[in-house]
Design a protein around this nucleic acid. Structure first.
Lengths: 207, 207, 207, 207
DNA sequence: GATGAATGAGCCTTCATTCAT
DNA sequence: TATGAATGAAGGCTCATTCAT
């Protein structure tokens, strides 16, 4: 995804260390709150050496964002128009929840970007993302029209999936503050199963 | 909410102007991304004068956060244990969605705070907020146990309400990128009605 | 000439101190070789305080350059089409030589700018300066055609005045290296009198 | 001129490429404005490889300067005390003007050095150059005293030759700004012929 | 109340130079 | 010879905060 592919061992190792460190720091503090000093230190490099690998703070952030967007869109891309509707949607929900659990920093970095008006990601949002969402929304509409799932607004359905799953990563501090030491994810998984089960249910009429 | 009550007309007006300006800037750029210069300019004051009203950037942010938390918790507080369960919950959902529409900056400021680990709000989260949520969760549990609403996990239900409603404010840029010029709120309201309707439904058994 | 006129006493004093210090440093070391640190120190201010008066190194350089260009063009502007040709031209030569003696730093700052391709002054050169030179060249041509001075190429005549007078400021180190402790200016004045006397002389034919 | 004579073909080629690139960059941007990066790139070498040929930026600049000074002094050295005075001087003028036309970068590099106080060239100026100038000035004085040319101040005469010829290289941007697309050199040559003709003329007394 | 002036600390970035290979 | 990797030092600039009035 990044344009300059690592070539030597050292390059590969350092680039990876930087990306990892930068993800950590950008996610926790936002673009402005992050300092190259802190990222360099976390990566075990000097600041100028970090800039030897990435031209600027901006470029580093962009590199992460691009990798991230690929990761982010993949599960929605994987939704199969030929598959069983309920399974496809529930699979997407489950995958997104897993990503919140396993990649919370990516989720928060993305949330930070959007929250601040998507100064860097906007083109992708209005381009690739919109196209992909429209495409999948059409698929869902088809399923709904065919009576294979209940009547849904496909766009809002997708927003709901995003909101409900990412919430556990983005608002983790709040979730933990309320749930104490309990791991929220098992409960969340069951709950979302229940929620989307209810949403997708085909309404039946009284006897 | 803030400790130093305004005294003169001018003071009141200036404090209000500062809070308004700061809300705008903090919400749009995060704590670190906001500068006192920009806030002062937006408020029509000089920087030192701004600091006459609020001792520090930190103090200003805190003042906003405190006002905000009151506003934020009010609708949940208003949920009446004696009321009709479905109406109470749906009312809360509706109120929260209104707040996203009418106070998106507050929502984003709050999201920023949580996203960055709630460095300033954590005490409130673990204190007042947790207590309030636990209290209301107990109420909801009671309703559920009494069969007046379907079986729900009350904590996750509350998280879901937050996630689904705040999403329209916090991820507004993304929502707009996908929905184009369409105002998302009318659709969102209908959709959430549908979603929480399905969730709260009391499952009925076949004939 | 500079856009933000000083208002208070302190501002006036500090702006003047900065311009003076910057002239010194820019002239001696060029734009890139000059550091804000050094200028600030020479002006008796802290670096951020210097930047309180001038937004950037660039802006400071520009302010000096603009003042300077006014100073630079004035003597040529003063050449009077109605005056006695020889007196007008010799007066210009004398004035320019005085300026080299009394404002060598300005001369060197200007030379630096031109030498590096006039990245900042080019518009003025191609605009005001060219217009002024063309205007005065026409006047000189008129004098020459009228037989009031010898035949001259007016543009090259003007270049020669610039070259011969500014040389004593711009190449001062070289002049001093060769002339030792002797002040070059008295000799220069006499010499230029002699040179331009010869140039402007109306050629006469043998008896 | 440089102390380490090239040995292999590759070495010779690389040294030449570096000197050529460095001349270009130093002349255009001054010592401080030039970067080894840019020079290395222009020479088609890596930066460390460049530093293999020249120990430091300083050393590289010095090497160029030394080569340059040789080139610079040669025409004056060539002025023949036994030759015909007028032809010798006019020849020198013509040669210097040719050098401005054919080696403007060398001229500008030298001008930069002098302008900044000759931090590196001063010894040469005060040593070789002064000696050479004094020697030739004596010759000219002799010619003048012998009535073979008009009365001249030999030092200022030499300064004038330098100033008038180098001006077309050093202030090229300004000359071009004023003369537009016209090539200034043909005119300059005729003009300088005229100027020095007038200067060297032996004054004659009225009938 | 209000503001012009000032600054210490910090940030991103550049650059000549060195090291290891 | 040549280069990828690394860095100390410095430079321009920003910003929250303080001081004096």
């Amino acid at each position: 995804m990044t344009d300059t592919p690592p070539q030597t061992r050292i390059q590969a190792r350092n680039r990876a260390a930087i990306l990892e460190a930068a993800l950590e720091v950008f996610a926790a503090r936002g673009f402005r709150g992050a300092t190259l000093d802190r990222i360099a230190q976390a990566a075990g490099l000097s600041k100028p050496n970090l800039l030897y690998y990435f031209r600027s703070k901006e470029a580093l952030h962009l590199a992460i964002l691009q990798d991230l967007l690929e990761l982010w869109l993949a599960p929605l891309r994987a939704m199969d128009p030929e598959g069983e509707p309920r399974a496809q949607i529930m699979g997407y929900v489950r995958k997104k929840l897993e990503m919140s659990r396993d990649h919370p920093r990516e989720s928060r970095l993305f949330a930070n970007e959007i929250l601040q008006g998507a100064p860097r990601a906007r083109p992708v949002l209005e381009g690739e993302l919109k196209a992909l969402v429209d495409e999948k929304a059409a698929v869902i509409s088809g399923w709904s029209a065919a009576g294979r799932i209940g009547p849904v607004d496909p766009h809002h359905l997708i927003f709901s999936i995003w909101a409900l799953t990412q919430h556990y990563a983005d608002f983790e501090v709040q979730v933990r503050a309320i749930m104490g030491d309990t791991d929220p994810y098992p409960g969340a998984e069951a709950w979302l199963e229940r929620v989307f089960g209810a949403i997708l249910d085909i309404p039946h009429h009284g006897p």
